[in-house]
């Protein structure tokens, strides 16, 4: 099983990078996002620049890679006519799907790193991480949460039948609602519950908190708990969607044409 997972990750990373659009998302888009962000925040304090330019634009790059890959991978397989073959393969479909999402997330993380390095080299932005261990642990947790969220999105988009349109639409609303480049608290009160129901909001908040100097467990506790709870919720939602897709395939026989 693990071999199948690793092979899927390896093959899918190659397949994703073969798509010109994905190449743009990983290699070039982070540079544009980071430049626009640094121009907008040109006269802001170093702390704001770190939170909203470096982390914000890096997270936007990561999110874009998820939107234009994981969220529509099942739909892409359907378009290629290979979805049914993957579904009936001896390796469980869920393993293949998770392998694809992990592969895309690795690329997305690279795109986030490109954004960091670009800002450091070209715009001489200082990146200081007071507690590297806490930061690396937070990054691992954040990537896990995003893999779970992508798993849910991928299946939910498949069920919606509008994967491509949703893929093109969902990029900016998440930037906005999850407060990638500004604090969520400036959004209208009625929007904020929606923000806090999404793992990316807690994920970026956690990264911001762990990179504050003298951050304590007390300050990390709230975003950490929020991220863990929302991730668990999306594990359950993802599982429900997976069962619904499976039902479409086995009972209705509509996996490839639904």
């Amino acid at each position: 099983m693990m071999r199948a997972l690793f092979q899927t990750i390896r093959v899918h990373m190659g397949l994703s990078m073969a798509r010109p659009m994905f190449q743009f998302i990983i290699w070039l888009s982070p540079l544009f996002l980071a430049t626009i962000a640094i121009f907008i925040y040109s006269s802001a304090s170093p702390e704001e620049i770190f939170h909203y330019v470096i982390l914000g634009s890096g997270f936007m790059a990561l999110w874009s890679s998820i939107v234009f890959s994981s969220a529509s991978d099942i739909n892409r397989e359907r378009f290629y006519g290979t979805l049914e073959i993957i579904f009936v393969a001896p390796v469980p479909f869920v393993v293949i799907l998770i392998g694809k999402i992990i592969g895309n997330t690795v690329w997305g993380f690279l795109s986030m790193v490109i954004s960091f390095v670009y800002l450091m080299i070209i715009f001489q932005v200082e990146i200081t991480i007071p507690n590297p261990f806490a930061f690396v642990s937070a990054i691992i947790l954040v990537l896990f949460a995003l893999i779970v969220f992508s798993f849910f999105l991928s299946l939910a988009f498949t069920l919606s039948r509008q994967a491509e349109a949703l893929m093109n639409f969902i990029e900016y609303p998440i930037y906005l609602i999850c407060g990638f480049m500004f604090p969520v608290t400036i959004l209208p009160l009625w929007v904020q519950p929606l923000s806090y129901a999404l793992p990316p909001t807690w994920a970026i908040e956690l990264l911001r908190v762990v990179t504050v100097e003298n951050s304590t467990f007390e300050s990390i506790k709230i975003p950490l708990t929020g991220l863990l709870i929302t991730t668990m919720i999306y594990v359950a939602l993802g599982y429900s969607c997976y069962r619904a897709v499976e039902r479409k395939a086995r009972i209705s026989g509509k996996l490839g044409v639904y």
């Binding site: 907008i40 925040y41 802001a44 093109n168 639409f169 900016y172 609303p173 930037y175 906005l176 480049m181 500004f182 604090p183 400036i186 959004l187």
Partner: peptide, 16 residues
């Protein structure tokens, strides 16, 4: 899609 794009940038510049 265009509405969400303008909303994002408008909220951002309004804040900054």
């Amino acid at each position: 899609n265009p509405i969400s794009q303008i909303l994002f940038f408008a909220v951002l510049v309004n804040y900054v």
